[in-house]
Nucleic acid binder design. Structure first.
Lengths: 332, 332
DNA sequence: ATGAAAGCGCTAACAT
DNA sequence: ATGTTAGCGCTTTCAT
């Protein structure tokens, strides 16, 4: 059933070296033999085995994207950027899902040690500096997307600046009684967003001691889930008076918050974060992050580093853009 | 930087065979040597390279899930089932994204020919019988999820029955002027759902010639997108009188349809299809499919076939379940 | 332009 | 319990 390079060589009446050359697009093969080899290969469905190629050539022609698939809403956009960049090459993209339940660092060390790929794109794989250090020591080419580590390439989002922008928008409109729906404290993006929120308020002379900062009780996905937003909003709606506007740590929570408002028949302006696909549909104003671009650029940088071992590190931070939709329409 | 089994063997003062045994959990190693090897390996961050292992052992310990990531809303649930089943083993899951723009069959033949994995799970990778035949001939272990091919294992959804159930629900409530929002004709699931819709109407003696069957003009993702549903609903709302209830080919279209209704301030009962995560949140009634279960069971079957070359084929079709939410609440 | 042969890093008999 | 050695399927000099 399974053919090797020997079978093809024998049937084509050439040596295995020639068959190899054909598949590696070497010019040093006569068109006649090339065609013959290709024809036979096609007939029996032969293709060089990735494993053997990888072993012999020490190039696997594989890029691996490491993603916590199930705990993230925008990886699809990142992935589409990655896929675009990879499609321009003869590399293949393999995706590895880091299991959230299991210890991350162990999984990753094992994965990289197995050397499946020529380079790794870590998408939203938040690790501590010490953990990244351990990973980095494995000496594989890597680019972080949506995280940062000083000794590696990374494309990050300036979470703090994003929150600043959202907060500033409300403040500029003259609103002062703002509230924040945040997520779990241990989430770095959530913490950064909160920081931006508070600093901006401070900058406008608002006393931040009494500012309501709430989160729901549902901690699944670090609190980045609809129920959490729903619960959080209900906490805000228990206040008297209500906040005049709400900055929210994520679109998904904002969606929950909106349904809480709907239930109580109130409309408080709110800005989410992430610009997930759905937000456009429900008219949620939000902070958009250039996810696809980060995927694309990150992959480019990865290839660059694979080609040139000692290329300079690339470290960038993008600032999110405020997208206005109906949830910021009726201010004043 | 990169260590091989020889480095470890030398440093531990043993042969490479022993090192290999340690990593393959052979019992025939004294605890003392095992510890020593493990300690040294850990120190330098050694792990057997997947490529070399795969080549030598003819087992890669890798399962590959082939998914059209960007054109599907429920693969995440399937994936979680797959991941669960794989976590019970010492296999790894790699995910391959079939690019929708490029010719599918070529991509897949090349992928399977490269023999990256011991088995393949094709999720929602709809191909023609002839194409599956071509893939099947490559002699790799495979299970189809959300598609069917007679010579292979598959776990399918009975799209027709699902549509029947939804349609029947409305008919049983006494409604007769039903409409269908469908997707592109070339989409097999869409076609099956339409078939179920029409047959059920026929069964109830409704004249199907004048039944409105519409789709939007946005054909992205075979019409499975919000805009399509929005456009389709507007077509229905141009009718006089309106339909009494709408069966919709997908939740994502139903979401678009709902926003069209909202704009015109009408409320027509509607049932979606897929039960995507969001539907619960917006109260969309829908046909739920056991995606996670299919992923789990499919993976189990795949392993079974890897272990036992001549295990019997497993072919199943699940019937979706009608989930009632607010969009079917106010009937009559 | 083509072939012969030496690895790539590992596993799995077969020895001891 | 441990070592020796022959491959696994391919790429890549080095010949010719």
């Amino acid at each position: 059933m399974s053919h090797t390079i020997y079978d093809i060589a024998r049937q084509a009446g050439v040596s295995i070296a020639t068959v190899s050359r054909v598949f590696n697009k070497s010019t040093k093969v006569s068109p006649k033999t090339r065609d013959k080899v290709l024809q036979i290969a096609d007939q029996v469905g032969y293709h060089p085995q990735g494993f053997a190629q990888g072993l012999a050539a020490r190039q696997k022609k594989v890029i691996m994207a490491v993603v916590p698939l199930l705990s993230n809403y925008f990886f699809l956009q990142v992935l589409s950027g990655i896929q675009d960049a990879i499609s321009e090459t003869d590399f293949e993209l393999h995706i590895y899902n880091v299991k959230p339940k299991e210890e991350r660092i162990g999984q990753l060390k094992r994965l990289l040690g197995r050397k499946w790929a020529d380079g790794y794109l870590f998408v939203s794989t938040h690790l501590s500096n010490e953990e990244w250090e351990e990973i980095h020591r494995l000496g594989q080419h890597m680019v972080l997307i949506d995280d940062a580590y000083s000794a590696s390439n990374y494309f990050q989002i300036d979470n703090k600046q994003g929150a600043c922008k959202a907060t500033e928008f409300f403040l500029e409109k003259g609103l002062r009684r703002l509230a924040l729906i945040t997520a779990e404290k241990n989430s770095i993006p959530a913490a950064k967003r909160q920081e931006g929120f508070l600093e901006t308020l401070n900058g406008y002379g608002v006393d931040t001691d009494s500012v309501p900062i709430v989160t729901g009780n549902t901690t699944y996905r670090d609190g980045f889930n609809e129920s959490n937003g729903y619960e959080a909003m209900n906490k805000l709606l228990a206040l008297d008076p209500f906040p005049e506007a709400v900055v929210c740590a994520s679109d998904i929570q904002a969606i929950g918050a909106l349904s809480a408002m709907k239930e109580q028949d109130v409309e408080i302006p709110i800005i989410g974060y992430d610009d997930i696909q759905l937000s456009r549909y429900i008219g949620l104003s939000t902070m958009r992050q250039p996810m696809s671009k980060m995927g694309y650029e990150g992959t480019k940088v990865l290839f660059h580093h694979i080609d040139d071992e000692k290329a300079d590190l690339v470290q960038e931070a993008y600032i999110p853009e405020l997208i206005h939709r109906s949830t910021t329409e009726n201010i004043q």
